[in-house]
Design a protein around this nucleic acid. Sequence first.
DNA 1: TATGAATGAGGTTTCATTCAT
DNA 2: AATGAATGAAACCTCATTCAT
Lengths: 215, 215, 215, 215
Amino acid sequence: MDFDKAIKLNLAATHQRRTALPPSMMKLADALEALLKEKDFNSISAAEISRTAQVNESLIYRYYKDKRGVLHFILHNYMIEFMGEIGRQIKAAKGALNKLEMLVRGHIAMYDANRVFAKILLLEVRNFPGYFESDTYELIKTYSRSMTAIINQGVESGEIRNDIPISRIRNMILGGIEHTCMAPVIFGYSISDDTVDDLFKLLFDGIVSPSRRSS
Amino acid sequence: MDFDKAIKLNLAATHQRRTALPPSMMKLADALEALLKEKDFNSISAAEISRTAQVNESLIYRYYKDKRGVLHFILHNYMIEFMGEIGRQIKAAKGALNKLEMLVRGHIAMYDANRVFAKILLLEVRNFPGYFESDTYELIKTYSRSMTAIINQGVESGEIRNDIPISRIRNMILGGIEHTCMAPVIFGYSISDDTVDDLFKLLFDGIVSPSRRSS
Amino acid sequence: MDFDKAIKLNLAATHQRRTALPPSMMKLADALEALLKEKDFNSISAAEISRTAQVNESLIYRYYKDKRGVLHFILHNYMIEFMGEIGRQIKAAKGALNKLEMLVRGHIAMYDANRVFAKILLLEVRNFPGYFESDTYELIKTYSRSMTAIINQGVESGEIRNDIPISRIRNMILGGIEHTCMAPVIFGYSISDDTVDDLFKLLFDGIVSPSRRSS
Amino acid sequence: MDFDKAIKLNLAATHQRRTALPPSMMKLADALEALLKEKDFNSISAAEISRTAQVNESLIYRYYKDKRGVLHFILHNYMIEFMGEIGRQIKAAKGALNKLEMLVRGHIAMYDANRVFAKILLLEVRNFPGYFESDTYELIKTYSRSMTAIINQGVESGEIRNDIPISRIRNMILGGIEHTCMAPVIFGYSISDDTVDDLFKLLFDGIVSPSRRSS
DNA sequence: TATGAATGAGGTTTCATTCAT
DNA sequence: AATGAATGAAACCTCATTCAT
C-alpha cells in the first residue's frame, strides 16, 4: 500500500482512516509530527523518525515515497480536516464580512491549536521545490479561491471597497494571518484573542468601504 | 583575518571594502549569494560554494567560522547598506506618515532589488537557533525600534490612531511588507508599484486616525 | 542494536556473543584491536579501521557512538573478561595478603598477555574527557573497591599495617602495577617474573604490619 | 638559513646560540616546547605552534623541514646540553662504577628536570620512521658508545662482571633508566631519590662482579 | 508486514604545506 | 626576514536509502 492509496483512504472518515491504514504507517506519521514540535524537518533524520515511532527504519520507504513523503502525508491530513472545518463554519455565517471573519478566525484558531500544521505551512513547505505542484498545494488553492469568492461577493454587495483588486485584498488578508501567527508559532506562545481582534480592526477598517463605516 | 575584523572593515566605504578583504573571501560570499538565487541555504553544500567561487573549499573555514558564517556575512553586509540607505531617506521626509511611507517603500524597494537579501531574511534565517542572539538581529531590532519611534511620534502628533498598541501597529506594517514581498520573492517576479500603492491604501486607511480621514 | 545492548549481550558466553552481535560490529572491533598493536589510537583513522575490517566505514557510527566508541567497546570486553578471571582467582586464596598477591599477579599477567588491553588502559584512555564517567570506569571502580575490601580485611586481621589510610595503600599498589607494566607495554618486552617478585618485595615490606615482619 | 646550518650554530655556546639564530626560529621552538607540556605532538597543529609563537605559520617551513623538524630541533638542543652536562660529570668521577652511577643519575635527573625532553625521547620519537637515521640519533649513539666505553673499562678493571656481553649490560642499564622514568613522565609525578637508589641496588647487585660484592 | 544489515555518497571541517610577494 | 593567500588531501561523521530474509 503506497502513499497515493493512503491519501484516498484518508479522505474517508477519521475513525476508519486510523484503522484502515497499517499501524506502522500511522506510527511514523505520528512520530514525525511529534518531532516537528521541537525541530524543523530538515534536521529530523529518517532514523530519528523511526526510532521515535518504534518501528523499523525501512518502513518509511515501504509506506511513503521518501522521508518528505511523511511530511506531505501529515500536511495533507491536516488540510483535509482544516477544509472540512472551515467549510462548515462559513456556511453558518451571513454576509461577506461575517463569512470572512469566520474564515480568518477559523484559520488562526486552527494554527493556534495545531502548531505543527502551522509550522509546516508557514516554514517547512515553502522553499521545497515541487511543493507548488503538489496535490496539497491544490487544496490550498481551493481554500484561496473560496476566500476570493467571498470577497467578490462582498464587493458586489457593497460591503467591501471596490477600488482595489480582489486578489490583492485576499493577499493582504492572508498576509495578516501569516504575520499574526508567525511569531507565536516560531517562539511557541499562544495567539491571544486581543491580537486577533486588533488584526480585524486594522484589516476591516482598511477594507470596509467608507459608506459603511460607523464613524 | 577573521569575520569580526572583516565586519569592521565592512563599515568602511564600499570601494575600499572589496580590496581590503582577501579576494577569496569575497569570492566565496559572492558565490553563495549567486547560489542563493536558485536554492535554499541548506541544500547548498560547502563544496558547491567553493566550486562556484573557483576557490579552495577550506578557505570557507579560514575566512568564516563555518558555512553559515558566509550567510551571516552576506546578510550583515546587506543590513549595513540597508540601514544606511533607510536612514538617509527618513531624514528627508516630514511628518510621521511620510516618514513611515519612506521607510516602507525603501524597505520593499530593497527587497525588490536584492532578492537574495530578501530570501535570507524572509526564509533562511528564521528557524536558525542562535539567530535571535546574533549581531545581525541586533541591527534588525535597531530598525524595528526606529519604526516604533516614528509610529509613536505619529500617535502623539495625532496622525496615527491611538486605540491600538504601537507594537501591534508596527507588527502589522512589518507583516504587510513581508507578505507583499513573500510571493514575488519566492516565485521570482518583481514587485509592482501598484502593489505597493495598494498596500499603503490598505495600511493607512486602517491606521490613520478617523479625524484625519478625508471622507 | 547499539552499544549498550551489545554490552549486555557481551555478558553472555563468548560463543554466543560473537554470533549475537552483527558480524560487522565485531569485525570493526577486531580490526581496531589489530591496529592498536602497531600504532596508537589517535593515528588510526576511521577509514583505516573499516578498511582493515573490510566493512563499510559508516558502520562504525551505526554500531558505536563514534570512533572512540570502538575503543571503549574493546576495553569493556577486556574488562569483563578481566573481572571474571580475577574474581575466580581471588576466591581460591586464603588470607588478605595471599588474595592481594593473587590480585596483583593476575592483573599483571593480564596486562602481560593482552598488550592492547594494557595499552588502552595505561595510555589511551586517561586524558579522554568523559572517560571517568563511562560505564567502563565503573567497572574499574568495582575492581578498585574489591581491592579496598581485601586490604580492609587484611587490616582487621592484623596482616596489614593500620597506620596508613587504606585508600593510600590501594593507590600505592595500583601505582606499583602501572609502574611495573608501563615500560614493558610501551617498548614491547615481556614482564619477567623477577620484576613482579621485586614489586612484591617492595610492596609487602612496606605494607605488612610490623608485628608480622620476619626481621 | 636552514636547519642544518642552525644545528651547526647550535653547537656553539649556548649564549651565542639564542642570539645567532633568527628570533622567529627560536620562538617557534619555544612555542612547541610549551605546548608539549600539555599535549602530545600529534595533537598540536602547525597553526597552533605559530599562533603560540606569535609568528607567521609559513616560517615553520622556512626554518625547519616540516612540523616534525621543530620537534627534532628541540630534541637536538636538549641532547647537546645533555651531552655537555654528562661529559662534565663523568670526568669528575673515579672508577667505572662511579662514572656509571654519575651517568645514570645525571640522565635521570635530566629527565626529571626536563619533562618535555623526556617525553620526546620516551614517547614521541620512537615510532617515527627515519628517526634512527637522524642526526639526533647519532648523538644518542655517541652517548651510548661512551657508556659502552665505561662499562668496558669497568670490565677490564674487574669492577664489572665479564660473563655477560657488554652490549647487554648497557641495554640493561638504559632499560632500567627508561623503566624508572616512564611512569613518572607520563603521569607527571617526580622521580624520588628512593626510586633511583632502588634502581642502583637492582642494577649493581646484578652487574658488579662477585669478587667485589659486599655480601 | 516487518526486520536487521549494509551501503555509498556526501556532509562539514582540519591540517600540513607551498607559493608569490 | 616575513607575510597572507591559497591548496589538496584527509579527517570524522551523517544520511537517506536498499537489500535479503
